[in-house]
Write a protein that binds this DNA or RNA. Structure first.
Lengths: 215, 215
DNA sequence: AAGTGTTTGTGCCCACAATTACAAACTGTT
DNA sequence: AACAGTTTGTAATTGTGGGCACAAACACTT
């Protein structure tokens, strides 16, 4: 069956909430409670999950451990994913240093840059390779995901090369609308775009008022 | 009129494309050309813009300069926005060092942290203040946007304080589903969630194949 | 001046996602 | 064992957003 992408986008949210519940020792949760903690309606959660099977029990709710396992399986989070980073500037180094990826099964196994001063240096247990070696290196040692952290001007070229190397998923930090063939998945990480849409709602409001007391 | 949030989310995309066209010296663009460069249908662009007025000319298209000005006005990008950063760890420092904000009119004017070792230090022309001073400082000198770059455990508390200080827009880098009252706008920046939804589409595919030749 | 080609703005329709509502299944209590 | 209270899964309904298609307006050529 064809599952709506919006549904897929919500599953990681559920996964994270369930993981948190599990470490808290919670064994069972209802769609009601899960929903209110996530700001999602209970019916939405039930319907989303119903695309994949029947994981709950009437009168009780969902077994946290079991549902978490199922979601991991559904999303493919029960394995390690190999990633290659392109661009080891300020942003790239921050990405390399971020440990939120590894702890969730996403490992950066290669890092590339065009700048000769950066090539060869070791950053976070990884040797920065020359970007011109991208194709030979990734052909021999394929990765699942490419992380693009280069300036806007070269981003599309980098993405083209990654796709030639068989990369089918790209995490794009560059401020461009990447053009990719169908079958390749791109997710943008763009704080500036996020800000620029929020200002629409702020612009007609009086400025920050006096904080409300006794809250 | 009530404008769908998805429409608002697309406007910054148009803005960025138009800005790029303007520096290229392009004076006029059709919804057709703008659409193909962004991966959006021309009809969608026209409909989105029609929520706000009639900016185009039949037979010609849109005047790049004029449309860009209109979008800036609509989104409130014709002014400076003041932001406060909370959390000056590895991630926070990367955010402070990022110049993509300032160039678009978003200035980080305060930075806070709880760690005594970080408080008082200067990072990128800003003195890190003690997080306990958040309320007094922001009450005297309000900001428009709060950037949350603290660990998940303390993120909700930080957000609550920011809201008490009158902050109505939050850029949240912490991996939590923030609970906020209506009238407060939150945008999540979560690379891990983006990855976790892409793996769904990757998981059933054969691994990276041999690159296609002669492309 | 007429004719050809473009392009906008929008009414209309369709698809799809969110919500509602309820039967069925289970728990816990009396 | 009967009953009251929960909660799931889903059929049915509602709502909303995207795309189509076309009249109207303009540009450009002959």
């Amino acid at each position: 069956m064809e599952i709506p992408p919006v549904v897929i986008d919500r599953l990681p949210l559920y996964t994270r909430a369930l993981a948190s519940l599990e470490v808290q020792g919670r064994e069972v949760i209802s769609s009601q409670d899960l929903g209110t903690s996530l700001g999602v309606t209970p019916a939405q959660i039930r319907k989303d999950l119903s695309y994949f099977g029947r994981f709950g029990k009437q009168g009780r709710g969902y077994n946290v451990r079991k549902l978490l396992d199922e979601l991991h399986r559904i999303l493919g989070l029960d394995r390690q994913w190999r990633m290659a980073l392109v661009g080891v500037g300020k942003l790239g180094r921050a990405i390399l240093g971020y440990d939120g990826f590894r702890s969730q099964g996403f490992r950066i196994v290669e890092a590339f840059d065009v700048n000769p001063e950066r090539v060869g240096r070791r950053v976070d247990n990884l040797t920065v390779r020359d970007a011109t070696d991208l194709e030979p290196v990734l052909s021999k040692n394929p990765v699942d995901v490419g992380i693009v952290a280069v300036p806007a001007e070269t981003a599309q070229d980098v993405i083209d090369v990654l796709i030639r190397c068989g990369v089918r998923a790209i995490l794009n930090y560059a401020p461009i609308a990447a053009r990719v063939p169908s079958g390749v998945y791109v997710k943008r990480i763009e704080p500036v775009l996020a800000l620029q849409s929020m200002t629409y709602y702020l612009k007609n409001r009086p400025h920050a008022p006096i904080p409300t007391p006794r809250s």
